[in-house]
Design a protein around this nucleic acid. Structure first.
Length: 453
RNA sequence: GCGGGUGUAGCUCAGGUGGUUAGAGCGCCAGAUUGUGGCUCUGGAGGUCGUGGGUUCAAACCCCAUCAUUCGCCCCA
């Protein structure tokens, strides 16, 4: 016998947990669709060359986290397929491939699993569900879209009612331009940005040391980088300080000034649409590790659960589709790590426990010789849209009630000899234990009323 | 891929420095209760002590290996 076990880092849920998970997934989908986003599904496999588009991958160490797939398990052939690592790359491939059939701006959402080859630990899985929303433009894409995403994310987390959260935004043009000014070569900017992204985790001293060692910067230059990346708070305050810093430093460049302008424009729109610094701030230490981001970048954390890490992040990528098409298709998107978020809160006991049950009604089988009648009642209720089960597996009525209780049915319908003769059934509320008599002709109507359908 | 912790019943764990037939709580099953669940009481099932080897008169306990799992690093949702 093979000991049944699942693979580490690939969390499977019990039905009650899955019901909870689906509830939150449905909230995400609802808000995505409220903004007009269209559903997209891509396959779990991609061609390896599509996923491992070279420059991007080599730059961010992603390659060793991609699962290769053999065409057939029995063959020793090269692994020319791979499991997708995220949903952004497959989406970029899809849009490039079908650009002539899509209507731009193309706004799509995608809620599917992705796979990453790493060691599992708390909040980190090898298989997890991402919820992506992206907007892709043809040739250009208005900055309004960069502002709209935090609004959508804000509405989702508010609707989920999972406590305070903070969406932090920055801009890679600003950070990249700043780094260029210090003399770091263009080819090293992506790595230097990844270093900045770690400030919060490893601390300023470590970052300082690394900038000295790796890029041979002078004290003044590192001071400047630290000063910039320490800026964090409400957008108007951060931008004020930013402009002061700009005035103090002598060097500027175009990229850098564009970055400031973008950051200003986007945050103004975000606040004008009703977000407050409670849930949305600027944080210039946010840089993101993935090198395809070219402008706006976002990172989101739950205020009361900093250890989970980021639960939603994304950014603007003006050139991602270039890997797959000559057409210029700039995009901006965000991705919610739903598995990380929900499973953590669930394990902490912070989400409402659902019953492992979908149907509200259970029909008690008092007398198995009347099974046909019970089936007929179930059919009537189901046709009326009321999910119904029949307790066929327990001989004793007491066992049937125990089953009803454990599984969490709202109502039990009780009918035996007496009831079939009179045509009046008993409907029992499992929570209050009270029973009412209902004429079988009014059964659907009464149950609908009780369940508030 | 690298480093640390942990593997005893379905689950959570107890088993001072090795010593006879390995325990508890919860859960599960049955009965008390043959037309009504949660509470209570009684009884019951369930263990190659992760696996393999070694030390010893004797190993759940000590040693080695291996596997699994978990936390951290890298990376990231």
């Amino acid at each position: 016998m093979i000991r049944p076990r699942s693979i580490s880092g690939m969390r499977e849920l019990l039905p009650a947990e899955q019901i909870t998970f689906n509830h939150y997934r449905d909230i995400v989908r609802k808000h995505f669709e409220l903004t007009g986003a269209l559903p997209l599904r891509t396959s779990a496999f991609e061609l390896r060359e599509v996923i491992a588009a070279k420059e991007e991958v080599n730059n961010s160490n992603i390659e060793k986290q991609i699962y290769g797939v053999h065409r057939l398990a029995a063959s020793n052939n090269e692994t020319d397929f791979a499991l997708r690592f995220d949903l952004t790359i497959p989406m970029a491939r899809f849009v490039a491939q079908h650009a002539s059939k899509l209507i731009f701006p193309f706004r799509r959402y995608q809620i599917q699993p992705v796979w990453r080859g790493e060691r599992a630990q708390s909040g980190r899985y090898r298989e997890f569900i991402q919820c992506d929303i992206d907007i892709i433009g043809d040739q250009t894409l208005n900055l309004i879209n960069d502002a709209e995403l935090p609004i959508i994310i804000d509405s989702i987390f508010k609707d989920m009612n999972i406590g305070p959260f903070q969406i932090r935004m920055s801009n890679r043009k600003l950070l990249g331009g700043l780094l260029l000014n210090t003399g770091i070569p263009a080819s090293s900017i992506a790595n230097a940005l990844r270093l900045i992204d770690k400030i919060e985790k490893v601390g300023q001293d470590e970052i300082r040391k690394q900038f000295f060692q790796k890029y041979k910067l002078k004290d003044k230059q590192v001071d400047l980088i630290i000063a910039y990346t320490s800026l964090r708070g409400p957008a108007d305050e951060v931008i004020d300080k930013l402009l002061t810093l700009v005035a103090q430093s002598h060097k500027t460049n175009e990229t850098y000034m564009i970055g400031i302008k973008e950051l200003t424009t986007v945050s103004k729109i975000v606040y004008s649409l009703g977000l407050t610094p409670n849930s949305f701030i600027l944080d210039l230490s946010v840089a993101r590790g993935l090198s395809y981001y070219t402008g706006t970048v976002y990172e989101t954390t739950l205020t009361n659960h900093p250890t989970i890490g980021s639960i939603c992040s994304g950014g603007r990528y003006d050139n991602l589709a270039n890997l797959y098409s000559n057409r210029k298709l700039p995009g901006v998107g965000m991705s919610i790590g739903l598995t990380r978020l929900i499973i953590h809160l669930m394990d902490q006991g912070l989400l409402q426990q659902e019953k492992p049950n979908i149907a509200p009604v259970l029909i008690i089988v008092f007398n198995p010789s009347h099974l046909g009648r019970y089936l007929s009642i179930a059919r009537t209720l189901r046709q009326a849209g009321i999910a119904t089960e029949i307790a066929t597996e327990h001989a004793k009525v007491s066992q049937q009630f125990k089953y009803a209780d454990r599984k969490g049915f709202r109502l039990a319908i009780i009918a035996g000899e007496k009831e079939f003769i009179s045509g009046i059934y008993q409907v029992k509320d499992m929570t209050t234990r009270s029973q009412i008599l209902v004429n079988n002709a009014k059964l659907v109507e009464t149950i609908r009323k009780i369940l508030a359908y």
